[in-house]
Amino acid sequence: MDLEPIWLSLKLAALTTFLLLLIGIPIAYWLSRKQSLFRIIVEAFITMPLVLPPSVLGFYLLLAFSPNNALGKWLQEYLSLQLVFSFEGLVFASLIYSLPFMISPLRSAFAQLPRSIAEASYTMGKSRLQTFFYILLPNIKYSIFTAAVLTFAHTLGEFGVVLMIGGNIPGVTKVASIAIYDSVETMDYASANDYAFLLFAITFTIVLAVFVLNRKAIKSPFE
């Protein structure tokens, strides 16, 4: 069994989760503040990957980043960045596709925090930045973990978006879900079963960890 697709999937999921933690936490906090029409529109765009077929999202990303289009040509000429049929393209597509899985739990957690916590911090002379990092984030640590593991698990099982934007290049874009598809196409059901079982075991462990953590989070007054 070639384990390279498994390691590539784990690498993609880990990198996507790390980047989305950096991106998602401030966005989720901003969305949890006072609602406005602009915030609602932004949240609707972020949520779209949950309802769009992955092939639709992958198709439009493929068109956007193709060297034949203006954006793809500009990225290639000025940044030497090719997002079509490359691992970098998989990462970018995964960021968009998995963004709602990171944002939704964090936004809900921020919204449920009593405003009195931040106000008490301000009265003690703490800045907004200090309050955010030392008061608010520690109080949603369980939600941060939940968002991270759900994002990791979701990215691990991507197929449609990965196939459209990355294709099937061994060692570059051939992740485990693509390896399963290839094995089934060639009627190599033994290899397909090996890949599928590994993904099932990893995903089940991740989901189980979320449920165990959520049981502990019930004891917290702010989760």
Rank of each mutant, 00 (worst) to 15 (best):
L136G: 03
G160D: 06
A148D: 02
T123M: 04
A118C: 07
T186S: 13
R33F: 04
N68L: 12
L3I: 11
K11R: 15
L113E: 11
A93N: 11
D182Y: 09
S86P: 01
Q112W: 06
G24W: 10
S177W: 04
D188G: 06
Y60F: 15
I206H: 00
L99T: 02
N193M: 12
I23W: 10
K34G: 12
V42M: 11
Y78C: 00
K73D: 14
A196S: 15
G160P: 04
L31I: 12
G167P: 00
A201S: 11
L57F: 08
L63C: 04
L95M: 13
S127C: 09
L62Q: 07
E77T: 14
W30A: 15
I25H: 00
F133R: 13
V162A: 08
A147V: 02
L90P: 00
V149W: 01
N168Y: 05
R33M: 14
S220N: 09
P138S: 13
I144S: 03
I180K: 00
N68K: 14
V162G: 03
I41L: 13
F145N: 06
E4A: 10
Y181V: 05
A179V: 07
V42P: 00
L136E: 14
T131Q: 03
L113D: 05
L208G: 07
R39Q: 11
L129E: 13
L99H: 04
A109R: 07
L15T: 15
P54V: 12
L129S: 14
A111N: 03
W30H: 14
E77I: 07
V84F: 12
L22G: 14
S108G: 09
E223I: 00
E223K: 01
A190D: 12
T205N: 00
G171M: 02
F85E: 03
G166N: 02
G24L: 08
